[in-house]
Structure formats: C-alpha cells, structure tokens
Design a protein around this nucleic acid. Structure first.
Lengths: 148, 148
DNA sequence: CCAGCTGGGTTCGGAAACCGAACTCTAGCT
DNA sequence: AGCTAGAGTTCGGTTTCCGAACCCAGCTGG
C-alpha cells in the first residue's frame, strides 16, 4: 500500500493521518493558524522549497482545507490562502499537538507564543471528553470495538 | 531549514509537528492505539517496507514514545512495542484526527471501529477547552500572543 | 515604451528517502 | 543437524525533495 492509497481507506483516522502525515503539512497548518496567508510569507517562515510549497498548498486547496482568495494589494490583484470551515475545524489537532509538546518537549526558553480564551483570558488546552457524562478521558478510559 | 532541523525549533507546536509529520508516524501511532504491538503485525497491517518500519519504530523508541519490551511467547523471548506514558499522552492528537475525519472525510460505509467511555458507554470526542471557565472553544475564540 | 522590480509560481538536474526482495541472526522444536 | 519463525539489515532501483534558475503579469520610473 503506497502512501497515497492509504488516503482511500475507509477509516476516519487513517485518512486524515495520511493527509496530515505528509511532510510539511502540520508545519504548514501551524503557520496558517498563526496567521500566515501568502506564498512568500510561508516560504520565508518555514524555509521550504518553492515547488514543494506550491504542491502542498495545492493539495490543501484540493482537499478543501484552504481556499485561494484574491485580494487587492497596492492596486494589484494578489492571492492569499485562508482556512475554510473544514480547515478551521482542524484546530483541535494543532492544539493537541501543542498541549503534548508543552508537556513533553518544552524548550528551555519557554513558549514562543501563548493562547488565551478571548472572553475570559484563561489558558487553552486540548482534551478528550465523553459526550455523555462529560468526563475528561485518557486512552485507558476508552474501549475500542471493531464494527461489524 | 531542512526538515530535521525543524525539530529543534523552540516551539511546542513545531517540534511535535516535525516528529509526527514524518511519513508513517501518525499511521503507526493509530495502529499502536488499536493494539498492534509486534513488528510483523505492523508490517502486515500497514504494508510499510520493513526497513522504514524498523527506522520509524526506532525513532519513536528514541523519542520515548514507545518502549521495546521483551516477553515470553511459546517459550521464547520476543519483543513488543508498547506506549510509554509520553506515548499514551498522544491520545488527544489521534482522537482529534478522528473527530475531524468523522466530520469531513467520513467514508460511505461508516466507521471501522467505535470508541466508547468504559464507565458510561458514551461517545468520545476531542475538544479544545478553556482551563479557566471550562468553555468549549474554536479557533475564533482564541487569541494568539507572541511572547517577549 | 521599455527596463526593472515583486509576488507567485513552474521547471530543471542532482541528492535523499522509499520501495520490494533477498539476506542475516537468534532460538526453539524435531 | 535441519527447519521454522520473528525481527531486523542490506542492496539496487524508483520516487520525492531540494536549491537554483527561469517565467509571467502588472506596476513604476526614466
């Protein structure tokens, strides 16, 4: 199973994992959520090669995670890449990465940036929750059952 | 910045993203959380080449996400790969992927497997939460501030 | 009106990563 | 001693990635 074919497995973990597990994808999304929108800005922020950057942005646009929006800049039409609804909905994945990174890979210098709830100023964290009883769960609290 | 160097950035999103954004890593972790432990089982479940599988498992062991545990099997010593505490703590990332996949990439056939809270049987979901007020947040509810 | 600059890419040839198949090594079983 | 099975390692050929160079459209300045 070459990697591309994995994306067609009928599994809601494998499919996103195959898409976001491509090199650069998560880094690219991190950058998007930090507010980067333009080709040149991605390129200088991440130091990725132009051809691969063009390719990855294209994939994300094809998948409907980003959309290419024209806008006026100094009297010219330019484009920027913006998150769609589908893309915005990836936020928990990125926050989960950060929550894990904070706990297990924290750099000595402390964080580059902070996240706060706009309304109350509180800290932001990813959690796994039971939709029934509202309990906060770890892997050990969950039972996996294969479907028919 | 070649991809490997990204892992040394002092950023708690970039570092995990560089590790898990390597090809196969997320798929491998999915498999681990589904209960796969042995080399041969990973190989047949994912159809990854043996050399790359050996390499990736090695990286995860070096990073402390997995540990190689000897155990007895039909009177012989064998090894299996098991999640460490650090590895178990990646659960929210995988559940976040699944929550997103369910919403945006669901296959027609329905899910391969279900997740339920052992105690109450309820459904399991990843969420972003404010640790202060407990509100459930989206990307739009969060303010990003660069640190000094 | 033509050269130059800038954002946003595409097109190379060489380097790195990946692949399947074959090989190795260790241990028990016959 | 020979066979089997798990767990890798090695090897030659194919993809994918990279940096650098090139392309194109639309101002700007001379």
């Amino acid at each position: 199973m070459r990697h591309p074919q994995l994306a067609e497995l009928p599994c809601t973990v494998a499919r996103p994992a195959a898409l976001l597990g491509e090199r650069w994808m998560l880094l690219l999304l991190r950058q998007v959520f930090l507010g980067t929108r333009r080709f040149e800005d991605f390129q200088s922020a991440m130091d990725i090669s132009r051809s691969v950057l063009a390719d990855r942005l294209g994939v994300l646009v094809d998948e409907g995670v980003l959309r290419r929006v024209p806008y006026a800049h100094e009297g010219r039409t330019r484009h920027e890449y913006r998150l769609t609804e589908k893309g915005l909905d990836l936020y928990p994945v990125l926050v989960a990465l950060r929550t894990w990174g904070e706990r297990w890979m924290a750099p000595d210098e402390g964080e580059q940036f902070s996240l706060h709830h706009k309304d109350c100023g509180g800290d932001v964290q990813a959690k796994v929750e039971c939709t029934e009883c509202g309990a906060s769960l770890t892997a050990r609290d969950v039972r996996v059952t294969p479907n028919a």
